[in-house]
Design a protein around this nucleic acid. Structure first.
Lengths: 158, 158
DNA sequence: TGACGTTGGTTTCAAATTGAAACTATTTGC
DNA sequence: GCAAATAGTTTCAATTTGAAACCAACGTCA
């Protein structure tokens, strides 16, 4: 996915975010960041990816405002990588991804990790698109509504 | 993201789905499939990607059970690519991705596409992780609970 | 002080992937 | 039947990936 979005996709609201996330490694880094990891070495150990790749992905995430490199936390002279507000905004997406995984990638009784409420230990509620008044929405009940094109001359549709 | 998950990540519930989705192009293909596109040429025109890449991504999505290649629909002798149940399961994820995009990639008044309810034209409700009893969950209120490791000998934790 | 391990990278280089373009084969429209 | 459209595959140069080697700064302990 190198091709930059010079396309009408630039408006679409999916292609741009995809570009910012970058790739699978980046999203796993974000997942681990939600899990509390902050240091280069922690990410590397957790993901088992080459250091140059990790460095590149961290740079990418920082340059897209998803991570922030902060100077320390225990006085050590190293950096730490923490989620920005924008990065934390990815939480629902990660939950959705995980739930999709839980639904389709494990046999009925195959044990698998599960996201649960820390306090109660109960699994997180299924994330399902709904209307404003709470009714379930199927994909085919929705449309992507593109905004009316406004040129400088025509502020109102002719 | 070529490295296959021989890692403990294989249990994690995020890495496996990521691998199935494949990459950004694949997800855009799925988005377009939700939008009603079905034909090779439609996807190519919509995405503007090279045909070899599109072919490879379609093969990937089919091999992972996200798309299905069905023989026709208007009697024409061509194939069509339609979402499987598993593929349709990606709807919440796409909604989450789009909502993240809407929140962080557009200026206050910058026009952008929006996912709305077809009937009412109202935007889809914000997708937010909640507890079983409906309370909002912040990332730090949750943990990934790994299942207890069961060896053949110890069916119960010692 | 200085040898040594740890942490956090960068550099190098071969192998894999990407993507544009050319090519091919099968339909479809007329 | 012929031209154009559709749905790919092949080819090849350029980019990206990732393993491994290298390097620099810091801690530490003797």
């Amino acid at each position: 996915m190198v091709k930059r979005t010079t396309h009408e996709n630039s408006l679409c609201g999916v292609a741009r975010p995809m570009d910012a996330i970058g790739d699978g490694w980046s999203l796993l880094i974000v997942r681990d960041a939600f899990g509390g990891l902050r240091r280069f070495g922690e990410f590397q150990k957790s993901l088992g990816l080459a250091k140059n790749i990790l460095a590149a992905r961290l740079r990418h995430l920082i340059s897209h405002g998803i991570l922030d490199a902060v100077p320390a936390s225990d006085g050590s002279a190293h950096q730490e990588y923490v989620l920005t507000e924008k990065g934390r905004g990815l939480f629902p997406l990660l939950v959705a991804l995980r739930q999709w995984g839980e639904m389709f990638f494990f046999e009925r009784d195959e044990p698998h990790a599960q996201l649960v409420h820390k306090k109660t230990g109960l699994p997180v509620q299924r994330l399902l698109p709904r209307t404003q008044d709470g009714r379930l929405l199927k994909p085919e009940d929705t449309v992507v509504q593109v905004p009316p094109v406004r040129t400088r001359r025509t502020q109102r549709q002719t």
